[in-house]
Each structure stands twice: as structure tokens, then as C-alpha cells.
């Protein structure tokens, strides 16, 4: 088997100290391979988002190793981790997180421009990425003038532009209607089929069905990594 794009080994993350100390992740290990979409499920507070921020190098684990495309993020400085996010890791957020002052094309071009690619080239790449997600005609619109679904497509285009190989999606359909959400997941799936590794954080089983594998978290621990059999056990008590 080839090396994984993302590998987490015995990752722990502790927030706070003393009486206020919270252990968000307690020795998590898992991997995501090229062409694979991994869904991470679990109830609120199980550590899903913490896992994603650590995998993206936005946060550092208290202990353990996070390796992206052969580079251990825990040994990298702020600048080097930022470079990884520009070149290797793409993020998709539940709230889209587009910059309202930039057009759709400029939002997509942002990681490339930040990486020093000339603005003209970066925008050409961005337009191509927007075409790929089906909204090429909206390239010059500002986020405020777009629907939620359109904004999330822009966010996906931004996550994949520049041929990045790891896509981290944190509840990407949470703010969208069912139909639009399905379209977004289809795009994610397509990107993984094209060779990227994807990690999809969700707490909806039907969304997890798009994944190749499902990792179940509870209280910061991986409780199952095999399939969807244990989904019922992990849903909120009120929803059971």
C-alpha cells in the first residue's frame, strides 16, 4: 500500500490547565490515503473539529505526530505550516469563510496569490477551479451577492486550487439545504476520485455514506473505524 496523504499517530490535545483542563483528543491514530474520502463522525464535543484543525496545521497537538505528504507538521514552524496549507491542504468550512471583500475568483486565487503565484496566473487557475465546480460565470461576484450553495462551491474551489492533495471539510453542508448539500458532497467525492485524500467531518450518517470509510469518535477517542454499523450508537441520546 502507498503512503497515506495524512497520518495521525497517537495524537493528544489538551486545552487549559488544572480544574479547567479538557482533553479534546486522547491518543488518536488514523490515516487517509490518496483517492479516499474518510468521514469522521461523532457527537458534539467528541473532538471532530479539533482533529481537523490539527490535521490542517492550524493547531498543534499536545503530543503525537501529524504527517501530511511525508512532512511532520508538529516539527514545523508557523511559516512552514502556512506553506503546507497553501500547497498541500485545502479547507472547507461549515460557514464557508469566504472573504467578503474579495470576489469569488479572488477568494479562490487567495492561497495561490499568498504563495507568490502572479495574480494573473492565480486568477486563471481560480477561474478554472470555479468552472470545475460549475460556477465559472460567477467569478467576479462578491460573496454577499451569492447563495449559500454558490458560496460553498467557491469554498471547495478554493480548497482544491493548486492541485492540493488533502481536503479537510468541516460540516460543509451544515448551512445548506439537502439538495445543495448533496451537490457539494458530490464535488468532494469527485475530487477524491481524481486523486486527493479527503476528510469529511459530519454528524449525519447519510453524508457519511459518501465516504469510503467512517471513523467514529467519542470523548476524543476513536471508537470504531470500520463502517457505518455503529452510527446509531454514536448519535445524540435525544436523537436516538
Amino acid at each position: 500500500m502507498t503512503d497515506p496523504v495524512l497520518r495521525l499517530t497517537d495524537v493528544r490535545r489538551v486545552h487549559g490547565t488544572g480544574a479547567t483542563q479538557v482533553e479534546a483528543l486522547r491518543g488518536i491514530s488514523f490515516a487517509a490515503y490518496a483517492g479516499e474520502l474518510v468521514a469522521v463522525m461523532g457527537p458534539s464535543g467528541s473532538g471532530k473539529s479539533t482533529l481537523l484543525t490539527i490535521a490542517g496545521g492550524l493547531d498543534q497537538p499536545t503530543s503525537g505526530a501529524v504527517v501530511v505528504e511525508g512532512a511532520d507538521l508538529t516539527g514545523l514552524g508557523l511559516d512552514a505550516r502556512a506553506r503546507m496549507r497553501r500547497t498541500s491542504i485545502g479547507y472547507v468550512f461549515q460557514g464557508f469563510n469566504l472573504i467578503p471583500a474579495l470576489t469569488a475568483a479572488e477568494n479562490v486565487a487567495l492561497p495561490r496569490e499568498l504563495d507568490g503565484v502572479p495574480a494573473r496566473t492565480a486568477r486563471q487557475e481560480a477561474r478554472a477551479a470555479l468552472e470545475e465546480v460549475g460556477i465559472g460565470e460567477l467569478a467576479d461576484r462578491f460573496p454577499d451577492d451569492m447563495s449559500g450553495g454558490q458560496q460553498q462551491r467557491v469554498a471547495i474551489a478554493r480548497a482544491v486550487v493548486g492541485e492540493r492533495r488533502l481536503i479537510l471539510a468541516d460540516e460543509p453542508t451544515g448551512a445548506l439545504d439537502t439538495e445543495t448539500g448533496e451537490e457539494i458532497l458530490r464535488l468532494l467525492r469527485a475530487r477524491c476520485d481524481a486523486g486527493a485524500a479527503g476528510v469529511l467531518v459530519t454528524h449525519e450518517a447519510r453524508h457519511a455514506a459518501w465516504a469510503d470509510r467512517v471513523v467514529f469518535l467519542r470523548d476524543g477517542v476513536v471508537v470504531d473505524e470500520t463502517g457505518t454499523a455503529s452510527v446509531d450508537l454514536l448519535t445524540e441520546p435525544a436523537a436516538r
Binding site: G56, L58, M84, R85, Y91, I99
Partner: peptide
């Protein structure tokens, strides 16, 4: 602040 956080998330250097 949220926009700057987004920039950080997509790879902006700290000095941005």
C-alpha cells in the same frame, strides 16, 4: 479577525 483567520486557514504567512 474572521477574515484574517480564514486567510490563515488557507495558508497566509503570519506576517500577512
Amino acid at each position: 479577525k474572521p477574515d484574517l483567520a480564514t486567510m490563515a486557514a488557507v495558508g497566509a504567512r503570519p506576517r500577512t
